[in-house]
């Protein structure tokens, strides 16, 4: 992806029918998309349709799946419906993942594009700053932040979002460094476009393909981070999320496996489906695979 011809080709054909067709030919990616759409639809409409509220006691505690007295997927230590928890908990988990992903992507884009486009001391300064964040283990950093600012859905989102932006920042910078020397960028500059216009209208659309793939990865990481934080008991105990169901029932893993297995499966399914979509996107945007 370093020579000029390919860059222009990708800029011309991305987002077009070609890429979409490539995506559809990637069966795992299609399966991933379908699963992901189902998950999103279930978390949006499921709680209303299912009726049982996730945080309320629905039946006796520790009823197994298939127990006639309890709901389909069993109940936890307070008799809360696990199925309702899985359906409702997705809202928090997906919200945190999406917003944290967007936050880190946004931060990364701003920092990376400024560094890549202007270069020089701005680049040096921003990249050293980025390296500070890169050097810290992200999950630990999130843990420390939560410890300092306290639990709560927005705070958790923030704590996850601000620890992940180094990756997209690096990637954006690399893309900007590469693209800013291209003919079409020089042409844009020659006709008198402002820096802002060149960055947002000329370079950014051409840098999107790898960034989109990175964005899917960030969302997967955010899902897992939130689950990890919740599992360690660092998230709001009053909010239902997949991770918090697992975390609260951690002590009963050996006696009531269903309390952690089903939310765990939901996390795996979500993470896998998003990762598959990202994989499909990468293939679709890769012109070298085209025509095969």
């Amino acid at each position: 992806m370093t020579d000029l011809g390919i860059a222009i080709e990708s800029s011309v054909e991305t987002g077009g029918r070609g890429a979409f067709r490539m995506f559809l030919r990637n069966k795992p990616a299609v399966v991933g998309s379908v699963v992901f759409i189902i998950i999103v639809l279930v978390t949006i409409f499921g709680p209303g349709m299912y009726g049982t509220e996730a945080h309320k006691m629905a039946a006796g505690p520790f009823l197994g799946p298939g127990d006639d007295a309890g709901p389909l997927l069993g109940t936890d230590y307070l008799g809360r419906d696990i199925l309702a928890g899985v359906i409702t908990g997705g809202r928090t988990t997906l919200f945190v993942a999406a917003v944290a992903g967007a936050l880190s992507m946004g931060l990364g884009l701003v920092v990376g594009s400024l560094a890549g486009y202007f270069g020089g001391w701005i680049d040096a300064l921003l990249m050293r700053f980025t390296e500070i964040f890169q050097a810290m283990p992200s999950l630990l950093f999130s843990l420390v932040l939560i410890y300092l600012i306290g639990p709560g859905t927005w705070k958790e989102t923030l704590a996850i979002g601000v620890t992940m932006w180094a990756l997209p920042a690096r990637l954006t910078r690399a893309e900007f460094l590469r693209l800013r020397e291209m003919e079409f960028v020089k042409a844009s500059r020659a006709i008198g476009s402002t820096d802002l216009r060149i960055m947002t209208r000329t370079i950014l659309p051409n840098a999107m393909p790898p960034l989109l793939v990175a964005a899917t990865l960030l969302v997967v990481i955010a899902v897992l981070f939130h689950a990890g934080l919740a599992f360690l008991g660092m998230v709001d105990i009053n909010t239902v999320s997949w991770g918090s169901i697992m975390g609260k029932n951690r002590g009963y893993t050996l006696t009531a496996w269903w309390t952690v297995a089903f939310p765990g499966l939901a996390i795996v399914a979500t993470g896998l489906s998003i990762a598959l979509i990202g994989d499909g996107l990468q293939d679709a945007f890769n012109p070298k695979l085209r025509g095969r």
Binding site: N26, K27, P28, L224, A227, G228, F231, G264, I267, V268, G271, L272, A275, L276, D279, D283
Partner: peptide, 20 residues
């Protein structure tokens, strides 16, 4: 492609293992 899927699964399970 399927190898990729498998490796992704492996990575995810690693994450899951790390969480627990």
């Amino acid at each position: 492609r399927w190898i990729k899927v498998l490796s992704l699964l492996a990575v995810l399970s690693l994450f899951a293992a790390a969480c627990g």
